[in-house]
Design a protein around this nucleic acid. Structure first.
Lengths: 331, 331
DNA sequence: TTGTAAGCGTTATCAC
DNA sequence: GTGATAACGCTTACAA
């Protein structure tokens, strides 16, 4: 598996290695004749540039690294795809790392991605401690999506998730619901925001802030809904941690013989493709993945090209998408 | 953003750069005293090894590259996560590339991944031409999952998809269905196998091989089901291209006022988490993602460590998972 | 056990 | 325009 190098191409074309390098990066200062000769030699030999060596020598990278905390959550997968699409015309190639839903996994993944010295790093919903983010921000521009921070060198692109949770509550209260339970998405900072938005909103209406521990997965949604049912305390509505969590919760409810939305209303969060399935028709708070991706890349490019050093904090307004899992509260 | 190098660490610890290198790869032939000194210097300086440089110098890689043809298809996302989990204990760090469902995108992604000169490349359901795969196989061991090939240097891990499609047909015929339409997953080689399995099976039962063009996406499933409905020819069962395609088809059917499975039965393919949602309950042909991932990595390691050069072709037996989208044919 | 020195495949800086 | 030559940060014989 030995690959030809620039040296081989140069020898074959009868020129110096430096000239081959110029041709490869199509520099304007190469005579057409030589260029053609070099290109011919390159294809004959099946030469492929060695990005690793290039990067080491040029001390610069054209790689955009993206960490996806959970590949199985369509919300993150969608943003990742968007990012890749947008980055390409900017001359950035994307590589992905998966966190596998565990902070330890994310940390390793960040380490791996960083070891390639990418031009920038975008993290989608990461759960890693701030110290990891800070260290990363010393090496390359870092943008956080769906995660807040106070770190001075890190940009963030978020939706106002407190307001988003409140939207869900307002919707349910408007439908007459008074006993609403929130399934909380673990102990991350975003989950805390959603809980706070929920708690504030229900309390504004004189209702009790009923929160049940859960996670951002379908299994957790099912398990925690089951726990709520087992508790025996009556409820008519669920504000789930996110869409997949909501789907798990719906499974548990239906498994217990309850109908959604006639007996219990359920609201998700993220407005993933899952929620949009006609079969599911989940009422949910929209997070505009395309817009989040666009802003993330824009922030990165500003640091990269315009030399911005002040952090940027994007906070998008949430929007509720009403589908078929919410209805008037039963009497 | 200047990072300390081995040179800096060596200077600080009062040793040579080579010794630092040994410590970093924790070689046994370093005295405990020196090792401690080097490690101390490294942490004081915040030294982080430069994987790029290491790879260039050692002409070897610990990176496993994985190309995912479609991140939004949970089937591939699941395999990717599995691969990452399995590769880590083997000392391989995983990076992902996304093909974005387009061969052009895949090709670019393969290029990017290959430019890092990974220890191996696993492609999940790729649609790139064989020439791309062959070129890749000259640089690094290549394993194909959910895609067949005759290339001599490329391993494959597949399910017997002809048999899988046949299973779906047998199931439907057993339920009394006689007018079955297959939504075809595009013009890839795997889609052809599924179609062939379908056609052979229905013809064995003296039925007409009715195939409608589609794609491996939800939108395509919805669109093609709609076309079938518009065609006016009666049918009682659908063998969809895959799970997401099936879900799109179900949307179209329900949108037209048909009930699944009372009026029309639907079978998917892949047995993704989507199909398992209680809300969806899709009857589908299982593809064991964990097993596929395991075999893919095993094949790679055999080439890497044991020096195997003969290609390996894994062909798993399919299994039908019956859920709630299939029922007795209406009279 | 530790140090020296020669690469790895590029790019970048000069002269020519 | 073109070609030497020195980096880039690390690994790896080979010496000591």
């Amino acid at each position: 598996m030995h690959r030809p190098t620039m040296e081989d191409v140069a020898a074959r074309a009868g020129v110096s290695r430096a000239l081959v390098s110029l041709v490869m990066r199509d520099s304007p200062k190469v005579s057409p004749g030589r260029r053609a000769a070099v290109l011919a030699a390159a294809t004959e030999l099946g030469y492929q540039p060695h990005a690793i060596a290039r990067q080491l020598a040029s001390r610069s990278s054209t790689v955009l690294a993206v960490l996806v905390s959970d590949l199985l959550n369509p919300f993150f997968a969608e943003i990742a795809e968007q990012l890749e699409t947008l980055a390409l015309p900017e001359g950035l190639q994307t590589i992905l790392g998966s966190g596998g839903r565990r902070p330890a996994g994310e940390r390793r993944s960040v380490q791996t991605l960083l070891s390639f010295r990418p031009a920038g790093l975008v993290l989608l919903g990461p759960g890693v401690p701030a110290s990891v983010l800070e260290r990363a921000s010393l090496v390359t521009p870092v943008v956080l999506v769906a995660r807040a921070t106070r770190l001075a060198r890190v940009d963030t692109v978020n939706e106002d998730e407190r307001a988003g949770s409140a939207l869900a509550v307002e919707h349910l209260v408007g439908l007459g619901h008074r006993r609403i339970v929130h399934l909380e998405g673990g102990d991350g900072s975003q989950a805390a925001l959603r809980r706070k938005g929920f708690a504030d909103a229900v309390q504004r209406h004189g209702l009790r802030a009923w929160v049940e521990a859960s996670e951002y997965t379908e299994d957790a949604g099912e398990a925690s809904a089951r726990r709520v049912l087992a508790g025996g305390r009556p409820f008519t509505a669920v504000v789930a941690a996110n869409d997949v969590n909501a789907i798990g919760a719906i499974s548990a409810l239906e498994g217990a013989g309850l109908r959604v939305p006639q007996d219990v209303s359920v609201v998700g969060y993220d407005n993933t493709s899952l929620a949009a399935l006609r079969h599911v028709g989940l009422t949910t708070v929209d997070q505009p993945s395309a817009e989040l991706a666009r802003l993330a890349l824009e922030s990165l490019l500003q640091r990269l090209r315009d030399g911005r050093t002040e952090p940027v904090r994007h906070l998008l307004h949430p929007r509720l998408v009403v589908r078929t899992t919410t209805a008037q509260s039963p009497p």
